[in-house]
Every structure is written in C-alpha cells, then in structure tokens.
Design a protein around this nucleic acid. Structure first.
Lengths: 417, 417
DNA sequence: TTTACTTAGTCAATTCGTTTGAATAATTCC
DNA sequence: GGAATTATTCAAACGAATTGACTAAGTAAA
C-alpha cells in the first residue's frame, strides 16, 4: 500500500471518527467530540451536520454540567442502518437482523443436518427475506449481509472469492457461497469464519469497544479463534489467522493419530460431535449444546472429565497466545453456554499461574464474551456495518484503480461514509 | 486512538510515502511515483522538491524509455541520515553505524562475559562515540541510537521506560537502560528486543521490503521472534509479542522440568550456553557460535543430534505460527551462521508437509534472513530511521496533547518528516 | 439582583495541500 | 519534418480544517 492521500480522504475518515466517538463514548456534545478527536469545534459542527442529515446520529436533550452554556447531546440513531447476519453450520442456521446500535430486532433459528449447498442456499435466501420483511424494509435498505461459516476457508479455484471448508461441509467443494448469495439478493455479502466474526462483533458492540487488541476463543462445533489488533480484525495472508484448532498438542514428533490420520491437534479435544458420541457410548443421550447444560447442572462425570481435558489443553493454548501475540485480553465465547464456558475459564485461571515461565508479571485478562450463543450471528451482521463505519486507517489511503488489486472477490462496496 | 486528521498530517504522510516509494522501488521518476502513489504529478513534484532540499533524495541521470520526454531518476541519498545500532547480550556487544541506504559504514565488536550495568553502559557510550567519530560526525548529526537486548522486557517499576530482562542479565534488575543512555548521549534512544529489531531490519532493508506480513524466527543465545504485520512491527500490549521461546512444548499438562523448575518450553531446546555445555561434557570444547560452524563441517554427531531435536521443535513452532498468524512468509535468521540456520530450515521443510492437517493448500514460504550474523545490530540501527521515515498510518492521525498518553517513556522524538 | 465569568455553538474569513488546466520541453513514430 | 507521446513545471482553483469574532445560555461571586 504505497498510495498517498488527500483532503477528500481526510474528510471521510473524520466523519467516521466522529461517528465512532459518539458510538463508543456517547452521548457526547459537539465540544466533547472536539476534545476527544483533537479537531476544532467548527469542524465537528460541520461533520455532525452531515451525520444528522444522513440520519445516522440524532440530537438529544440539552445537558448542563458546571458553568457555561448547556450542551446538546448526540447519540447514534439505531434506525440509521440495518444489517443481516447468518451463522451457518452443519447443525443449524441462525439469522439475525440488527440495527446500528447492535440491537437484535429479529431472530430466526433452524436446526439442520449437513445440508446440501442447494438446500442451504435456498434457506439462506428465504431467511434473509423473512428478516427483511418482518422489519418492513426493502432489500436495498439493508447495509449488507454477513455470512459466518466454520473455518478455515479457501480461495476458489478460479481465484475469485472464498469457498467454504469442504472438511466441515462434505459436498461443498469449491462453492463460491458469497457471490451466489450476492447475485440472488443484490446486496453486499461478506463471508467470514464464525470465530473471526464473533470477534468483530465483540469489538464493535461488546467489551472489545474499550480493548484495542484481544484474541477471541470461539467454541462452536469445533474450536476457532479470531484476532483483533489495534482495533482492526486481523485476517492473515490467506484469511485464516487464528485457526487455533489446528495447533499441534505436542510440538515435537510427527506421530499421527490412528483415528483421524491427522497429527494430534487441539481441535480434537473440542470436537462437539465427538463429545456427543463419547457421552452416548457412556449411556447418556446427547444431541445438542443445550443437552450439555443439563449434564453440567447434574455434574455428570463424563462431562466433567471432558472439561478437565479441554481446560488442560485450553491452558496451553492460552499460553501460546500470550507469548506469541501478547494481547491485552483474551475473550471466551461462542455457542457453548456461558455456564460451561465460565467453568472452563475458571479451570484455566487456576492452572495458568503454575504453567507460566517465571518472571512474567503482566498477563492478558480473560473475559466472557458479551454476545451469548448468537455471538457469531451478531458478529457477521456487524461486518457490513463495520465496513461502512469503522475508522480503519486504510480509509485514509487512496485506492488503486488498476484491476487485480489482490482482494479476491468478496464484495467490498463503495462505502457511504 | 479516536483522533482525527487534517491536511498538515496528509502532507507529512505523503512525504513519507514518496520517500518510501523511492526507497523500495527506486530509482524512480516523478511520474513513476505519481503512478504508484495515485497522487498527481504536480503534488509529487512539490514533495520531491522538499526531499531534495532536505538532501534525503538525489537526482540521477535522465532516462529515456519508449517515446516521450526522458525522465529524471530519483534515488535516496545514502548520506541523508545516519543511525547507530548496538546489539547487547551477555557474551558480546556489536555496534554498527549505518547510513540511510542501509550500508554498514563502521562496525565494532567486543566479546563480553555477563557485564555489570555500569560496565556495559560505559562500553556502550564509548562504542557510540567511536562510531560517530570514525565517520567524522557530531552526535547531533545521528538520527538516533537503537539498542537491542534479549527479550522479554518489562516496564520499570515507576512505570516509565522499559528495563532489560533480569533473567538474561543477573544484577540488571530495574535498570532503565534507554533513559540512561539518552541522558548521556543526548540523542533519541530506542530499546527493543533483538529478535524484533532484526525483523524491523529485514522489513526495511531485506526481503521484507516486498513482504507485507512475516514472522522472524531469531536464533541468538536463546530463541526469539518478531512479527511484522501489514508492514508495521507488532509489539504486543506489553511489548513482548513473538516470545516463542516460552511456548510450551506440550500443550496439556503442567509437569515442571526438574532442571529449571519451569514448565517444558521451546527455549530450552535452543539455549546456546546449554548446548555448549552438552558438547563440552561430550569432550568437545565449544565456547562461541563460530566453533559450532566447525562442528557442522565435521558433521559432529552431538551437534547433528541437537539439530534433529531443534528442528523437530522448530517444525511445531512453525505450525503454531502458521495456524495462529497465517503470515505470508517466515524468516529465519539471527546470530547462528547461515550454514546452520539453512540446515535447520531444510529439516523443517522436510518434516512440515506430513505434520500439517490435511487440506491445507497454501502455506507461508520460508526464507533465510538477508542480514547475516549482525542482523540484530543492523535491525536496531533501523529503529530510529524507521521512526522518522516509515509511512505508518499513525503518522496521519493527530497526537494527543494531554499528558499520560500511554507511551511508557521510551523516547519518541519529534519526527522530521 | 447585578455583574463577571465560563462554556457551547455558529458565521465568515483565512490557510494550506492537492488538484486541475495550460504551457513547455524532449523524445519517438510515421 | 510533423504528429504524437511523455515528463515536468507554472498558475489558478478547489476543498478541507482552522482561526477569530460573535451570540447564547448557563453558573459563581459581589
């Protein structure tokens, strides 16, 4: 990115910064924003005027604090924008319609069993239309559609667009999900692995608002991870950073496990279908994540045994993240219930001190994700909103006009801000 | 960082972008730069005029290619700036004076044996003065001094400035090396762990110029790592990202090793003093890194055994980096000779395919660092230059005027560009 | 109650870096 | 030799943030 910048980009960025300041720190007065952004009050006044005209922010009552004239408070207009998020996995499809403030306005949930591409596509289009109509919107009033799938993703064979991991979805080889949906729905579609999406959601609406750099450990049907650095999601070169499930459990040695033919890796210890099967063999019928909650309440021995093993590996994983990435915090969330995730966190916290190398004083703090079981759906829904409103540094830089700019096909719309 | 920007910052950034374009892609004409940066020729012409006046770039001959008027070529002026780098470890101090083009103009090397803080400080001041006088410069003509130490670093107890890891330097508890030197020498001092510094050097002068995101595996007296993402060094929240030596070798289980009292971690397998001792017990007198080269030529069994063990762990480490960070490339370098590092890389490359989880198609490429044994010294020398010239996004953003801006004490000078 | 002071916000003029358009020079192609 | 092409500069225009003057609306002190 050796491109320069000019005053047009300056303004775009400042508009986003004002929006972001109100979003994160609001309600705020124009003078407050000026102080936070180091811009002049006059500039803020002009930018706020534009945001008001776009109906993205709204004026509240006047507030008097100390001496001087009372200030007019500004907050985001929740109805300023909508986005849709679809979280797809082999066993379910969850769809949400969220507004600019991150409120889930509508939710649709369907249980699935390894759908074919055609079935899933039809269902996703239907779900999207349902969500749009319930809010009495037209398709073009929605900022975009985010789709979450279990990682990792690969590039399509023609080099255009990402395709879903065929290992998680047998029969989905080389299906360019994003462009299919985009053609059907005529709105920008963002495909992302659900762990990363959950991280973006946490960054935008959760505790991540205040935390610059954190790693999100995502418990889904498998184990995933997402990384936010300096407020920006970090995707990696091939778009698969944070794929913690593939980390080897033993750093040296290449012994492949008899069972899967793959080298021993962390993911095996967090494979939910595998856990269900173990529990079933043990005489306990389990099919869904909700069933696990009941077992936890009953302190079921086999479940507790799994949790011991899982937290043991999780501790090592946390250490790897600490030493390699040194984040400010580590976030735990996903589709497992808060009760189970919380217990895992407790166990990790107990083990961790003894397993750190001596002399380390500061360590990243751990926190439970705020979004709950729909973290991924909410997360992918924030992708279009993030794209339009986030004050990312690249907003400031001129875009290459030339073709072949490296971005492989996932739609990036002309941003409105 | 919720600060805005204005046209003054725009210009600063564009100046750096022009400089960077010439540095990386040069020699370039004004029109070439305009095409690369997407700025207008007029703008480039103005900015180049300033860089010429600052003597940071120089005009070369005119070059005619195809039809049209011939263009004036622009290159960096090597004498436009100088910087000094000092690489300190328990066993040595290496100092280099480099120019803007990355040429090592002078080099000083001293063997040490766990110096006291006072001794080391005196020696570092002396070395700096020697290097400055050899080039017939005055202290204030040097852009700054970079100091590399083995990581990790900690914050000083008063919260101001980083201090050297007391584990690597017994008796160095809570010594604020950077501010001491800054007071003595009156130039900006940048303290950094040598692995990260080597990565910055590689990014600036080596193969990293073309690679946006890479991980640098540094073989020093121990094992270190540095991370460059989107062209920017990533430090982590406490400044200790990339501390790969501390990664647990076994993800689950908290068995501490009898020997050190610490949990088993990768660093133990790359501890040079420990290797020397093993070899000595084996009847082979070894004291320095150069001795190891001789043993490699002789295919010494004990050394080869170490290399097998080391590469075995290195492979696991590479996998962890691949899956967690998904970089474009991984760079191998440090103070071990290229011959040894090269052999380690060969062994890793042989083991790696069998140990990846099935289905992974693309993988980061591996390359040997370009800088050789002085990588760290050259790397720290680039820190002041990087600070002044690198087109980092934060250059575009207004700085907070208020005190307590979070930057803990390491001197950040007013940049000239 | 009056007066002084403080703070929020707007209007108008200024500043400054990039862009645009015109002009000039140097070279190749026909 | 003339037309086309490319590099570079000069001068004017554009558009963003800034600055300074001003109004409005409150608190604090006399």
């Amino acid at each position: 990115m050796l491109t320069g910048t000019n005053l047009v980009y300056t303004k775009k960025y400042n508009l986003r910064i004002v929006h972001e300041a109100i979003r994160v720190l609001g309600p705020l007065s124009r003078a407050d924003i000026a102080r936070h952004t180091e811009l002049s009050v006059q500039t803020i006044s002009n930018l706020v005027k534009e945001l008001l005209a776009l109906r993205l922010v709204q004026e509240g009552g006047r507030r008097t604090e100390g001496r001087g004239a009372p200030s007019t408070t500004l907050t985001l207009n929740p109805d300023g924008a909508y986005a849709i998020g679809l979280d797809l996995d082999r066993d379910h499809l969850t769809g949400v319609l969220v507004d600019l403030a991150g409120n889930v306005r509508h939710r649709v949930h369907v249980e699935l069993d390894s759908p074919s591409p055609a079935e899933a596509l039809a269902l996703m289009v239907e779900t999207t239309n349902t969500l749009v109509h319930r809010q009495k919107l037209r398709l073009n009033q929605v900022a975009g559609l985010g789709v979450g799938v279990p990682g990792p993703m690969h590039q399509a064979e023609n080099g255009k667009g990402y395709v879903v991991n065929p290992k998680a979805f047998p029969g989905w080889h080389n299906i360019p999900l994003a462009s299919w949906l985009q053609d059907q729905l005529g709105m920008p579609v963002y495909l992302e692995n659900n762990a990363m999406a959950a991280a973006v959601g946490e960054r935008w609406y959760g505790a991540g608002r205040q935390i610059d750099t954190f790693f999100y450990i995502y418990f889904g049907s498998g184990l995933g991870g997402g990384l936010v650095m300096h407020g920006q999601p970090y995707e990696g070169f091939t778009g698969n950073a944070g794929e913690i499930g593939y980390l080897p459990t033993i750093l040296a040695g290449d012994a492949t496990t008899r069972e899967t033919g793959d080298p021993p890796h962390v993911g095996l210890h967090f494979n939910m279908p595998r856990l269900y099967e173990t529990l079933r063999r043990d005489g306990t019928p389990v099919n869904t994540l909700e069933d696990l909650d009941g077992l936890l309440d009953a302190r079921h021995p086999a479940l507790l045994e799994w949790m011991d093993d899982a937290s043991d590996h999780l501790t090592g994983l946390v250490l790897a993240i600490e030493y390699l990435l040194d984040p400010e915090a580590i976030c735990f969330g996903g589709r497992l219930s808060s009760a189970i995730v919380g217990e895992l966190m407790d166990r990790v916290a107990r083990q961790l001190p003894a397993r750190r190398i001596g002399g380390k004083v500061t360590a990243p703090r751990h926190f439970l994700a705020t979004a709950g079981v729909d973290a991924a759906a909410l997360g992918v829904a924030t992708l279009p909103i993030y794209e339009i409103f986030a004050p990312a540094p690249q907003v400031l830089l001129k875009q290459r006009r030339s073709p072949g700019n490296g971005d492989p096909g996932v739609h990036r719309p002309v941003t409105s801000l």
